[in-house]
């Protein structure tokens, strides 16, 4: 499958972070230090350089690994290890599967979320990217278990991710920089939960944009 053999999904992620740069920083500015968009777009843009520096364009697992390594190398603080670990785990799962399909994506998403929880120790309700990731994964796996097609699973996942992202508005931050604000952190979206929604949506869009096939 063409998508598995090219870095396209990752390229689209990189383009997306560039486009959302200002918006993500704006959200982070409300209850964080206003650099989330900068952190993300800087890290992702470095990944594009790494990918294009290769003699031949890498396949999806390799591109995800490049992205992960760039984040782990280029971004300190929390985004490097959280998203770096996320994409590294996805890369490993997809490489093991050797293909991109409903099952392997479900595996990759599951392993990715595991890494974020292992590294960051956040729970649903803490007002972090976990609030996007956990419902997205659960919904994907439910759809998969119910026998829905890959694109339907992705569609359901994106819907749950959006719900999860929006849920952070009414939450009080219990982890990360904004936790210091206590009740004052209520009323605005969480930056990481938002970027995470954009990431899942971008990946789903990349896959669904394919010519109709048996996915």
């Amino acid at each position: 499958m063409a998508l598995y053999d090219s870095p396209e999904i990752v390229e689209n992620l990189i383009t997306m972070t560039g486009e959302q740069r200002a918006y993500l920083s704006e959200i982070d500015g409300a209850i964080g230090d206003g650099d989330h968009g900068i952190n993300m777009s800087k890290g992702f843009a470095q990944a594009r350089e790494r990918i294009h520096a290769r003699a031949t364009l890498p396949n999806l697992p390799q591109a995800l690994d490049d992205l992960a390594m760039t984040l782990l190398e280029g971004i300190g603080g929390s985004m490097g290890p959280l998203y770096g670990g996320f994409f590294l785990a996805m890369s490993e799962a997809l490489a093991e599967a050797g293909t991109l399909d409903r099952e392997s994506f479900g595996q990759a998403l599951t392993r990715g979320v595991e890494s974020v929880q292992e590294v960051g120790n956040a729970q649903v309700g803490d007002k972090t990217l976990i609030d996007t990731l956990v419902p997205a994964r659960d919904t994907y796996l439910e759809a998969q278990a119910a026998g829905l097609r890959f694109t339907e699973c992705l569609e359901n996942m994106v819907g749950a991710a959006e719900q999860g992202q929006l849920s952070t508005k009414d939450l009080q931050a219990r982890i990360g920089r904004s936790a210091r604000l206590g009740e004052r952190s209520i009323g605005v979206l969480d930056a990481g939960a938002t970027s995470c929604y954009f990431i899942l949506k971008s990946m789903a869009d990349s896959i669904r944009r394919l010519p109709v096939r048996s996915v």
Binding site: L72, L82, G85, V119, G120, I175, G176
Partner: peptide, 13 residues
């Protein structure tokens, strides 16, 4: 928090 997370990923590497 940041050091904990980065050390965890470093150990994985």
């Amino acid at each position: 928090a940041g050091d904990n997370m980065n050390v965890k990923m470093a150990i994985k590497m």
